[in-house]
Design a protein around this nucleic acid. Structure first.
Length: 468
RNA sequence: GACCCCUUCGUCUAGCGGUUAGGACUCAAGAUUUUCAUUCUUGCAACACGGGUUCGAGUCCCGUAGGGGUCACCA
């Protein structure tokens, strides 16, 4: 049988890193088994669901390149079907209308509190005659869950788990306004979509027991489940805003590559021997739900950054250039012209080894773009203020001699000669040159940069500072 | 609080009854170096605790402690 997985986010916010990993695992499992990966938007909470959130989630998935199969399913559109199932259950005596008042429910809750027990509905309408029904109350529909015995699930990741049926109550499947609840909707949709494997966060584990009550009542096959451990913040508590970035979009904005984020998320809870950098191809080949660990993992930004810098080094220059085009335009209102692109193509490899993320890369490559005068950082400005102008006037004269053969070896030679004649050390001038031609205090090797920029450009930049 | 789950270096993890407990990130030291990186060497660092089972336990069992999750007319 063909495997079918699904990712079922509720559109009440951005695409969370934890959800993204759930999507990744579903996607990988589907690819590994040559099955389908479906997307279902659980938009039944009309108050909290937003169009904007749907867009953000889709954008996030697209950025991560986790393509779903078939059309997106919007749960809200299946409401009628969900209600039909509820009616069915009602007709067969497997569910019942409950006319409990808010008052009565409140009392149950308070009683539970005093007894220090979790709240459980007391099933007062389970076998009660409908003739007793109060006229002023719109009933909810509750499902009859087993009163005694125990239920067990056999989870691919968590193993076999048993729970006494006393822990469950007759939960609501249709609200008093006639709308189906999540518990009903997921089951019906998963069944209708022929989902074979439910891969979701560990926080849904206890829901599985409830959902199984519905599967059993409908006499439907229960899909296999795999509950993946949650991602925790660095301090071991639930991942939240105070831990920094938590949404996929934020990582993107922080200059993290999608490949790097995928690789990092994959290694959170899953492993393949000692492999750290894992291509998508291998990830698909090697992935299995059984190999996902049971314990929750803490998010480690340092490791993400290290994976990210690895992927940056491997990144294609054209991709970087198109990123830079956008970045510079937005931030500095600079258009990349032919000269800049040419320089970037020559100089980018050296910048890549120095970058932890794309934003840092962009700042470091800015001096290659032909804006004049160049932007100068605070640290570079300190050097520029202390520049010995005569030295560099002389240096320019010397450099002009090799203007037509402006190659790094040549430049290195001529500067070495210049220094020995002047009785100077390289350290006497190097940071000053760097500051004047890059506007930065750190950069790739100076000779390499000079060759890329060319004599005219260097002359222009240095003269701007020493004549000014 | 009740129920369920989890526990190997600081972090992510390998290990599937016999290992000098391995790798990666971080950190430290060194080499290369033109700043910063890269690269390369080396080092620090873990089986939560207590009982069993066994010739032998990180690995199996039971407790304890710690952490997490769930307990809605939200999903």
């Amino acid at each position: 049988m063909k495997t079918v997985t699904r990712f079922a986010p509720s559109p009440t916010g951005n695409l969370h890193i934890g959800s993204a990993r759930t999507a990744l695992f579903n996607w990988l499992f589907a690819k590994n088994t040559k099955g389908k990966f479906l997307l279902r938007i659980e938009d039944t909470d009309k108050v909290r669901s937003t169009k904007d959130s749907i867009n953000k989630i889709l954008e996030g998935l697209k950025w991560l390149d986790l393509k779903w199969d078939d059309e997106i399913i919007y749960q809200s559109k299946n409401q009628k079907r969900h209600n039909e199932v509820a009616e069915d259950l009602l007709k067969n005596g497997l569910a019942y209308k409950c006319f409990c008042s808010e008052e009565e429910l409140k009392n149950m809750r308070e009683e539970a509190k005093i007894l220090k027990k979790p709240f459980r509905y007391n099933r007062m309408w389970r076998d009660r005659d409908l003739k007793d029904a109060p006229k002023n109350i719109d009933p909810v529909i509750r499902i009859k869950s087993p009163i005694d015995g125990e239920s067990n699930i056999d989870d691919i990741i968590q193993g076999s788990i048993k729970v006494s049926n006393e822990e469950m109550d007759d939960f609501i499947i249709v609200r008093s306004d006639g709308t189906p609840t999540y518990m009903l909707s997921v089951v019906v949709d998963d069944h209708d979509m022929n989902v074979t494997h439910i891969v979701r966060g560990h926080d849904h584990l206890t829901n599985t027991f409830r959902q199984n009550v519905i599967y059993n009542a409908m006499n439907w096959n229960v899909p296999k489940s795999a509950h993946i451990p949650l991602i925790l913040g660095p301090d071991g508590s639930k991942m939240s805003k105070r831990h920094g970035a938590i949404d996929v979009e934020e990582y993107k904005n922080n200059g993290i590559l999608s490949d790097a984020l995928i690789n990092y998320m994959l290694r959170l809870g899953w492993s393949h021997g000692d492999d750290e950098i894992i291509s998508l191809e291998n990830a698909i080949k090697w992935f299995s739900l059984e190999k996902i660990g049971k314990s929750p993992a803490k998010f480690d930004n340092d490791k993400l950054i290290s994976v990210n810098s690895h992927y940056i080094k491997e990144l294609d220059n054209n991709k970087i250039i198109s990123f830079l085009e956008n970045y510079y335009n937005k931030k500095y209102k600079i258009e990349l012209d032919k000269i800049s692109i040419n320089r970037l193509n020559l100089g980018l490899d050296d910048i890549k080894t120095r970058s932890r993320d794309l934003n840092q890369l962009a700042e470091m490559a800015l001096f290659y773009c032909s804006k004049f005068p160049i932007t100068v950082s605070k640290k570079a400005d300190k050097y520029i203020k202390k520049v010995d102008k005569n030295t560099f006037k002389d240096l320019l004269i010397v450099l002009k001699n090799i203007e037509n053969d402006f190659k790094k070896q040549k430049i290195e030679q001529i500067i070495a000669k210049f220094l020995s004649e002047k009785g100077l050390k390289l350290s006497d001038i190097i940071q000053y040159i760097r500051a004047m031609i890059t506007g930065l205090d750190v950069s790739p090797r100076i000779y390499d940069i000079m060759e890329v920029l060319g004599f005219e450009e260097i002359k222009k930049r240095i003269e701007y500072f020493i004549n000014g």
